[in-house]
Simulated scan of single mutants.
Amino acid sequence: MDRIVDIATDGQHLSLHRGFLLVEKDRAEVGRVPLDDIHAVIVHAHGVTWTGNIVAALADRGAPVVFCNSSHAPVAVTLPLQGHHAQNARMQAQIAASTPLMKQLWRRIVSAKIAMQGSLLAARGVAGAEAFPFMARRVTSGDKENLEAQAARRYWPLLMGQDFRRNRDAGDVNALLNYGYAVMRATCARAVVAAGLHPTLGIQHSNRGNAFALADDLIEPFRPLVDAVADQMRQEGIAALDPTQKRRFARLISFDLHLAGETSPVSIAATRLAQSLAEAFETGRPDLILFEPPTAIEWSSIGRAEREGA
């Protein structure tokens, strides 16, 4: 089973030992995890050291190592150089993708994100949720009207309250969101590399210093899943991360979604989306495998299941 390994204690040392990630502190073993079970490693502690062997072994298995700052926002990632047998051809197709194709791909991603936002708000019984399906249908090629931003301006106050402002550098619920997005970004980065694509070459995100650009494109429809967990924590009065709350976010990768007539966990949904994107680059057709928004019962199970399992 895929596991998110969170390194949050200062001064730990990571190494490879007989097929395990070995975690030590002051030369004493803290824990070990089978390498084949690791989905990603997230590091946001100080003074962490590691061996080159463990980084190479994780890369061989496609497991990214994500380094976060004090606000739990990711600032760096390690990814394997080779992720797919047709990697060269796919990257060439990615580089050569036409502007009209990129705009159509972005339209589909934005539309799916807005539909997810509206679905979450509707599941919460929030007045105003009915506008989001209409906005999702109105998204045009390249999102010329910037409906993504228009939806966000409505969405956050409706979900988190009128005083909430999304700020990556702030604490409280913003830090919870940062951590949840780091988990989801690692999942998308892993899927992108496995599909033979380059994570730096984005569809819409194009910051020159962003090594996650394509992962940041693909993460967009998944973000409301993180928002649902963070909002549940906010309602419970939780404003700080601890191991229990981190596990709630980590378990999101196994949350079931409906796509292409099947039920698959988030980790597989990300893989299917990345694979369909690679095929879109090769064929020139903007066909993406995107999941359906959860039902109201499924939305409520995100918070309830985490709470019961905590």
Rank of each mutant, 00 (worst) to 15 (best):
D169K: 14
V48F: 09
H72D: 06
A149E: 15
C68Y: 14
P199S: 13
G237F: 12
P133W: 02
F20K: 01
N174Q: 07
L81G: 14
D217F: 04
G11Y: 14
D216A: 05
L21A: 04
L290S: 03
A45Y: 02
L16V: 07
D172N: 15
A151L: 07
D287N: 10
R272P: 06
E292I: 10
L21D: 00
S71L: 06
Q94R: 03
P224E: 02
L257D: 01
G19F: 04
E220H: 08
L16P: 00
R138N: 11
F249W: 03
G161A: 12
D143H: 10
G11F: 14
A93V: 07
A73G: 02
S254V: 07
R248T: 03
E292L: 15
G118K: 00
V66Y: 03
W106R: 10
N167V: 08
L277G: 00
P265C: 13
L214F: 13
V41F: 07
L120S: 02
I297M: 11
I95E: 06
R248K: 11
H72Y: 09
S206W: 05
A151C: 13
T99L: 08
I7K: 00
H85R: 13
M135S: 03
H85C: 07
T187A: 13
D231S: 08
G52L: 14
V5Y: 02
N69G: 12
W299G: 08
M160V: 03
V33Q: 13
V126R: 11
R61V: 00
R168G: 05
L105V: 04
I95W: 05
P243N: 05
H84C: 11
V226A: 15
Q150T: 12
L252R: 02
G118P: 08
G196D: 02
L201G: 03
A89Y: 03
F255L: 10
V65I: 15
A215E: 01
M184T: 07
Q87G: 03
F20M: 09
E292F: 13
S267V: 12
R3P: 01
P265S: 14
P286N: 07
L225I: 09
Q245E: 09
F255M: 08
G31K: 11
T244E: 14
S141R: 10
E292G: 08
P80K: 04
Q204I: 02
A131K: 14
R3I: 05
F281T: 01
A59S: 15
T9R: 15
L101I: 09
G209M: 10
I268F: 05
P64F: 08
I38C: 09
A175Q: 12
A131E: 11
W50F: 14
H198I: 04
G196Y: 00
L105P: 04
G237V: 10
M116R: 01
L58K: 02
G196S: 06
L225M: 12
Q94T: 06
